[in-house]
């Protein structure tokens, strides 16, 4: 059986991968996907803690509830974000973050 440590390590590494993608990639859709990766890494941490700190011999279901709400909010976020990207593409014909400099000082 894997211990809590390995789950936390794996989820931290997934978060680091997502963070690297957000910082390094230029394509705004891929940046968005990396945000989803980071949210999922947080979900893995929540589920791992819920399993390892169970109450009454069962997993702690309060942690899994938070995972549901995170998944729901992520779904709503993706829908709105992709609509914004489509609107942006219509206005600018680009989705590269380097080309979107109108708010640069």
């Amino acid at each position: 059986m894997a211990s809590l440590y390995s789950y936390l390590l794996v989820s931290g590494l997934l978060f680091a991968i997502g963070l690297a993608g957000v910082v390094l990639r230029r394509n705004i859709i891929v940046v968005f996907m990396c945000l989803e990766l980071m949210l999922s890494a947080a979900n893995l941490t929540l589920v791992a803690f819920s399993r390892f700190n169970g109450s009454n011999g069962l997993p702690d279901y309060n942690g899994q509830m938070l995972v549901f709400f995170v998944i729901t909010v992520a779904a709503a976020e993706v829908a709105v974000g992709l609509a914004i990207i489509v609107a942006l593409y219509r206005a600018r014909q680009t989705i590269h973050t380097d080309d979107l400099t109108s708010m640069k000082g």
């Binding site: 211990s3 809590l4 069962l58």
Partner: peptide, 11 residues
């Protein structure tokens, strides 16, 4: 570290 213990379904 915390090792995973099996669920106590009877309890």
């Amino acid at each position: 570290d915390k090792a995973s213990e099996p669920l106590k379904l009877d309890q």
